[in-house]
Nucleic acid binder design. Structure first.
Lengths: 195, 195
DNA sequence: AAATGATGTTAATCTAGATTAACATTTACT
DNA sequence: AGTAAATGTTAATCTAGATTAACATCATTT
């Protein structure tokens, strides 16, 4: 049988599922292994699954009208990934989710999640709690984008997500920060001169 | 007795409360009237209340280390306002919420909301649904800030929130968009020349 | 009606970050 | 090992938007 323990541990940090509830949950989730470069979701498709990263790393990005790619977020172990807008509305996704490393996910389909929410009211609470947190960090990112220079945003990123920074190419971090790779390179050489 | 109908209507669009549940809810919420200029929440205080705007208009903003004000969001009729980060953690708020007009709100205290969530599981679902939506629009705003010019962000704002634009001084809209009032003025005169 | 403060405009100058392009280095594939 | 592709750097030039400052308009109070 597949090992869903990482997700169960994660959930049990916020709500306590009994054995029966854990069983129901495990019946409706599934394992998925993807290779580096493979897509978990493509822009324009309907986001059928929400994914919990067990190992590996994904980037969420979109391509604008000018063909430019913009990284929206990364996800590593113990993070969720999906296009929430598409997932909750079951309309075409704005975003791609692609693996930056070989990645294993635990996925839940939209329909099964609805079923689980009906059967296990505790999960209603669980998902409320994690989305509250996601919303707060999204707001904080807006605030940083409004009030901080590119250099300070980079320093913040480096402090808060040191694990992510080490695993990911610079040009993707630049995109996440809303700057070009050339400018990030300039910032880094400035920082080296400073210290 | 106070009139909580606007909030009940809003909730009943997403979940169906029975009479008993509505009663419990109404016992734990309260009305609050604030004058133009008054604060619903001040930066540094703990956000004790989440507010549902019945009439009027608020701005959420923060003052950065340089003393610069940044508008994070507005709220008009049927919108929620609070500092969610402070509210869910009961730690000091990053934001101020100030009334731009005389404003009436329905407010719920953090403790009472926890009590309501225990007593009325449907509300767990209700809050999950509205926070999901808030999260999605927050993500979309990040995307716009990453990929659109100031002019396009302004045009988007004007299309999506025409009611807000008419009620609010330009310099606050500029701040919300992440630009200076002078540059917004320039954008507007350009737009007039174009059409 | 005058005065004060809040809001909005215009224009000159400045700068953070973009663009372009050439080159260096690392990684992965045959 | 050798080659191609992916990633990273540097420097010159350019531009979206900031800053400064002077002035215009509108609203509120006395």
């Amino acid at each position: 049988m597949d090992d869903f323990q990482p997700l169960l541990d994660y959930i049990n940090r916020l709500v306590q599922l009994d054995e029966n509830e854990e069983k129901k949950l495990c019946d409706l989730i599934s394992y998925r292994k993807l290779l580096k470069g493979q897509y978990f979701l493509q822009q324009g498709d309907i986001c059928k699954f929400s994914g919990f990263v067990v190992s590996g790393c994904t980037k969420t990005f979109f391509v604008d009208e000018d063909g430019q790619e913009h990284v929206v977020m990364f996800a590593i172990e113990d993070w969720w990934t999906s296009d929430m807008g598409s997932y909750i509305s079951q309309k075409p996704a704005d975003f791609n989710v692609q693996c930056l490393e070989n990645t294993t996910l635990i996925q839940i389909s939209y329909e099964d999640q609805q079923e689980l929410l009906r059967q296990i009211p505790k999960l209603e609470r669980f998902f409320r709690l994690i989305i509250e947190r996601a919303f707060v960090s999204s707001q904080k990112r807006i605030v940083r984008n409004l009030s901080m220079s590119a250099k300070d945003r980079y320093l913040h990123f480096r402090n808060v997500y040191p694990k992510i920074e080490q695993r990911i190419p610079q040009y993707l971090i630049a995109s996440y920060l809303g700057i070009t790779k050339e400018f990030l390179s300039k910032i880094k050489s400035q920082l080296i001169l400073e210290q």
